[in-house]
């Protein structure tokens, strides 16, 4: 329950690229072949450990439909990390990356870590976007790149955790001002609200947070 940091992630990308499936795979470790269209935004959360610190990833899984674009844009704010997802079996999703990237860059803080993810790597036979293309795009825009499969869970964990690691490194480097929640980073709860006599658990997150400042 208690955590040192909370990182806010957003998952963006065209509809149907598997954003919600990635989230489900990461949080529930399961794959749901048929998924309802996401309305607005859905949420997922999971605790991970980096550098022996408990970090809570709060993932905002946005709707990819164009209709929700205006709404989802308002959710970009305050995200520390973004997973920009495209479908390797659908080139148009790759082609729209620039738009997504611009949107994300425009509506979020400049330090947001963006990971480019080519999903559905299990469908190699239907691949339309080469891995090299994804790598090139990522290199060009300063993103981290990874091909994943929400179905086989390949690289799913790595995608989320590597992003968190990068964020964590930025925190250590002082790039992120963790006291500014607009950066998408929250320090763990200092105290459980019902327990004023709880220096133990609450103090852990607090001390860790202060140590990073």
């Amino acid at each position: 329950m208690s955590y040192a940091y909370l990182f806010k992630y957003i998952i963006i990308g065209d509809t149907g690229v598997g954003k919600s499936c990635l989230l489900l795979q990461f949080t529930d470790k399961r794959f749901q072949p048929v998924h309802d269209l996401t309305i607005g935004v859905e949420f997922g959360a999971r605790m991970i450990t980096i550098d022996s610190k408990q970090i809570k990833l709060q993932i905002w899984d946005t709707a990819g439909q164009e209709a929700f674009r205006s709404i989802t844009r308002s959710y970009y704010r305050g995200a520390a990390g973004a997973l920009l997802v495209y479908d390797i079996t659908r080139r148009e999703t790759f082609n729209h990356l620039t738009t997504w990237l611009d949107d994300a860059r425009q509506h979020s803080n400049s330090n947001m870590v963006i990971m480019l993810i080519g999903n559905k790597s299990d469908l190699e036979s239907r691949r339309e976007v080469k891995k090299e293309e994804g790598e090139a795009f990522a290199r060009e825009h300063g993103l981290v790149f990874m091909e994943t499969s929400a179905k086989t869970a390949a690289n799913v964990e790595e995608a989320f955790i590597n992003t968190a690691k990068e964020i964590y490194e930025k925190i250590q480097e002082g790039v992120f001002d963790i006291n500014n929640e607009a950066n998408g980073i929250k320090i763990g709860p200092q105290h459980s609200p019902t327990n004023p006599s709880l220096p133990g658990a609450g103090g852990a997150g607090g001390s860790q947070g202060s140590g990073c400042c």
Partner: peptide
């Protein structure tokens, strides 16, 4: 405290 914490 931990017990309390858990309960709380």
């Amino acid at each position: 405290a931990l017990q309390q914490k858990n309960i709380s």
